[in-house]
Structure formats: C-alpha cells, structure tokens
Design a protein around this nucleic acid. Sequence first.
DNA 1: ACCTGAACACCGTTCAAGT
DNA 2: ACCTGAACACCGTTCAAGT
Lengths: 238, 238
Amino acid sequence: MTTSTTRSRRERPAKAALSRQGIIDTAVAVMRSEGLEHITMRRLAAELDTGPASLYVYVRNTAELHAAVLDELLGLVGEDPHAPPAAWDDRIVGVLGAYTGILIEYPGLARSALVTRPSGPNYLGLVERLLRLLGEGGVPDDRSAWGIDLLLLFATSIALEHGTRRQTTPEDQDEEDLARALRDADGGAYPTITALGDDLVSGTPDARFGWHVRVLLEGMAVTPRPVPASDRPRQERP
Amino acid sequence: MTTSTTRSRRERPAKAALSRQGIIDTAVAVMRSEGLEHITMRRLAAELDTGPASLYVYVRNTAELHAAVLDELLGLVGEDPHAPPAAWDDRIVGVLGAYTGILIEYPGLARSALVTRPSGPNYLGLVERLLRLLGEGGVPDDRSAWGIDLLLLFATSIALEHGTRRQTTPEDQDEEDLARALRDADGGAYPTITALGDDLVSGTPDARFGWHVRVLLEGMAVTPRPVPASDRPRQERP
DNA sequence: ACCTGAACACCGTTCAAGT
DNA sequence: ACCTGAACACCGTTCAAGT
C-alpha cells in the first residue's frame, strides 16, 4: 500500500520536525505497545518517517535513548498525597515499590537501568525523596550517602528478577532452572543448600521484597561507616 | 587466504567433532581474548568451522551460552586454602569479592548474570559456600534462605557498576553523567542531594563494597522474617 | 541424531553529500 | 546546523535438506 506524498501528508500530522522530545515520546509509545526491545534506532526512524542517521543529532546512542524513556516513565512515580500517614520506613518501602512497579510493568527497563545508570531529572527526584526519608528516619547522613546506591541497585535488581518471572519471556526459563537446580541439588555436594530446601524459594515476591528492604534499612542503621585509613591513629597491618 | 581442504586439516586439529564442552571452551577462549560481546553464535560457528545452525544442537540460545561461560569461569573462585583464619563475615566479604572480581575481570558477565540467572554447578557451589558461612556466623537459617539472593544480587550489581567504570567502554560515560548530575543538582529542586554533596560519590570501590556487604550482614542479623499471614493470630487491617 | 546452507528478518553506527 | 541515503559490518534463529 504505497501512498502518494499528498496522502501521507494527511495521514501523518504533517510530519512534525524532529526533536529530542518527539523522539522520546515516540519511543515511549512504542514501549507501551510493543516493549523496549522494539525501541531501536531503525524502528523509531521508520516511525518518524526518516532514516536512522537522523536520530543521532538528538540522541547519543540506543542506550541513551532507553535511559531517556526510563526517566520519562519515572515521572509517574509519585507518592500518593491521599495516602494515610505512615512511618518513614514504610514510606521507603512504598517509594521503592512504586519504582520497581514501573520497572516490572515495562520489561527491559530494569536491565537498561542496570546497564546505563540513570541520571535524568526524575531519577534524581527519586534519589532526593529517598534521602529525605532516610534523614527523617534518623539514618546518619554519611550512611545515607553510601546506602542510597544499595537501595536503588537492589530495587532495580529485584525488578529485573521478578519482571522476567512475571511475563512469559524467554527468560523465565532460567528463573525456573535455578529453582529446580536448588531443589534437586545433590545432598553430598551441596549439603547446606539441601538442608534449607524449599525455604530458598519460599514467600511471595512482596513478602521477600519487604523483608529485603528492611534488612537494608536495619543494616544501615547499625553499621558505622569505616574510618578512612588517613584518619586512623595507627595501623597494625592491613 | 583460502586454504585447501588438506591444508586446513593440518592447521586446525583435524576439526574435532562438535560437543557442548568444546563449544563452551571455545567461547571461554573468545571471552578471554575479545570479550563477551564477541561470543555470538555466528562467531563461534566460524571458530569451530561450521555454520551457526549447528550450535543449536548443544546450546539453547545465546543467553544460555553466556551463562555456561560464566559458570565455567566461576570454577576459578575458590577460597585460598593458605589464607590465615578469618572471621566468618570477613570470609564472606572475601568470597563475594572473588565473585565480583571475576565479573569485573570479564566485562559483560555481570550483565549476563543479571539477565539470565545462573544455575550451573559452580554457581551452586558459591551459594553453598555462602550459606555455610552464614550458618557459621549464627544467622538463622530462614534469614539465610531469603538473604542469599540479596547478597548475590548485590554482588552482581556492584560488579556491573564497577566493571563498566574500570574499562573504557562506551558505558562509563553514564557513571560519570550520574556523578556530575548529583554534583550539579539544583539546590532548589534537590536540597537533600545538594546537602550530602560529594559524599554521595566518596570512598574507594573497595571501601564501599565492604561497607555494603556488612550492611547486608548486619541487617540480616537483626531483621526477623515476617510472620506469614496465615500464622498470625489476628489482623488489624493490612 | 547430528549437521548444514541458505534464508528471513532484523540490528547500530558512520559518512559523504545535500539543504 | 540539520537531515539523509547508502553503506559497512554485523546479529539470532529457523527450516528444509542432507548424512
């Protein structure tokens, strides 16, 4: 179905000029309908009625494009203003839960967030909110500074893990492989694994998630930062 | 340089029959010399003097191949038997450090481990060793069972983060982007980030790593597992 | 059962040339 | 400065046909 120039002018909204935002918007649309794996330079170019080379004026490479999509979607993570008042740690669980929620809803984003560290405004907003909550909870600033990484890295990893499990992507196979490998582990070679048995894969994702986050928060609360070598009075031998 | 059939028979060791192990060995060799991104079906097929389709008899897909390479290399992670006796938590830091060491040495492996959860014998060996050390440290079994994930997920993520930073891959750009974004963050929009300032990116990777692991261990030590809803006497409202 | 050639359906990125 | 066509150098996976 080849359309004349005039026809296509009418069907598409007059071929809007290219812009970074336009590219990202198109990418988000493709993400929603077909998933991250279809956000490719070539595909987007086709969508925008141009050649792939044109996009490189606005976007450094494919990874940067994916990161931009993530930040765009992160704009939706806000705390519900009508939520009942909650303790600081429950609120952290909530914020991280919303973050992983987005990552799980759009498979592929979590991987992208691990590969290309996000640094967009909405991601910074998330960091900001978490740091504030940690401060409210009385976590010393220096531990917040080092722990924020851990929290977000963890939330992203968990999303990756559960995201691939939820959808029927080719990847859940290995989540199951691991569960089976743990269950069937040879008692001679892996006695401790065998002893723990099913508990290694027990619990709902939510229960595990909540516990994991609390482990991190409790750990931060009780673990002092190391004293830098230069500030230490003397040294035995490292 | 086209070689006759007779020549090539002499140059290559008589074109060994295909086998899963042979494929993995070749893949490991390619990994060492050129990196994971060159372990492709087509490349390996060329290396083994056959067509890509032939490999699918022994390997499910590219991801499984990468996972097999990881497990192969994980065979090298053993505790030094001549190491001086150490406390259980220091030994855990050591084991996880060795694990991340491998992942950092071979860029791409960490990403692969996050995407495709490893389940090979050597990975199970690692799980086994860690569970044993946790037990020695007095961590209750149920918390070990849920925490082992967290430890390994974290170690893998950290390797990914620092691995991309170390090499001059196209990806370090964004690690720097994030550091700059944090430093240059607008004090109005992100007051807490601004207040913490440089401490957000302070410390050597080793110092951060050690602290992170200890946070996880301490957290596990003090955080009880949630009581399943079915075992709870009554409920206020969830 | 194992192996293969060929095909299908794509990729990212660069570059010289145009406007 | 922005945009493009065309090219370079690749991918994974399937399938019908052979041994």
